[in-house]
């Protein structure tokens, strides 16, 4: 315990390096981010397409166990499996979905680097699958875009990283049955949109037809 008695302790070089790394990790980027994430979601994306035209994004969010359902509805209302009652879906929509409007429901769709706008989400539903809460909804594009004329980039992420999104399937983005057979999805790490104060590059998909 003599180390704790020494006010003028001089650290060994190896410890100095470790401590310097910790200072760099924990203090320097402090103004930019906070200790996250707290919510983990596995997502599935299906692009609603007619030929090569993208009209909407159909999404499925599967929340990891530990998502605090009791903050939204009474736990006695949760079924073992299947869809929630309309009143409970409305409660989820009001308290754990609508506030994401400003963040475009964490859905990012870029054409030539420009973010596309979405209309109001449709068909919002909440169900229990394998003891996990699942959201499904459709996000229509404000202006449909032709993937044959330009390359689209689509991804789901939370800039603040309060929520950590991981794709359920590979490829992360699939197409509706009405999409042109020539359309393909190529996953990549989006270096243009660093999140969490620059600590991470989110995964996205490049769509071309």
């Amino acid at each position: 315990m003599s180390i704790f008695r020494t006010a003028d302790a001089s650290y060994p070089p190896a410890l100095k390096r470790i401590l310097t790394l910790f200072l760099t990790l924990c203090i320097l980027p402090c103004a930019r981010v906070s200790a996250h994430p707290h919510v983990w979601i596995n997502y599935g994306v299906e692009l609603e397409m007619h030929g090569t035209q993208v009209d909407a994004v159909q999404e499925k969010w599967v929340f990891e166990q530990g998502f605090p359902v009791s903050l939204v509805i009474d736990l006695t209302h949760i079924p073992k499996a299947g869809p929630l009652a309309d009143a409970d879906v409305a409660a989820f929509k009001e308290q754990a979905f609508t506030s994401l409007k400003n963040a475009d429901y964490f859905t990012h769709l870029f054409v030539a680097g420009q973010a596309l706008q979405f209309d109001e989400p449709q068909h919002f539903a909440v169900a229990v699958e394998n003891d996990k809460i699942v959201y499904t909804f459709l996000l229509p594009l404000h202006k449909p875009v032709d993937a044959a004329r330009t390359t689209l980039e689509v991804g789901i992420w939370d800039d603040s990283f309060f929520v950590d999104y991981e794709p359920i399937n590979k490829p992360a983005v699939r197409f509706s049955s009405t999409a042109a057979a020539s359309c393909k999805s190529e996953p990549f790490q989006d270096h243009d949109h660093a999140i969490f104060g620059g600590a991470m590059f989110p995964f996205a998909s490049r769509i071309s037809c």
Binding site: S99, L100, K101, N102, H108, F162, H193
Partner: peptide, 28 residues
């Protein structure tokens, strides 16, 4: 809400994505 987002955010217009300088690769 459970996403750490305020109800104010819902009524605010969607914000444009901001460019963030990435941290050095080893730290990342």
């Amino acid at each position: 809400d459970v996403f750490g987002r305020s109800s104010d955010a819902a009524s605010a217009p969607a914000s444009a994505p901001q460019k963030v300088l990435p941290l050095p690769a080893p730290i990342r």
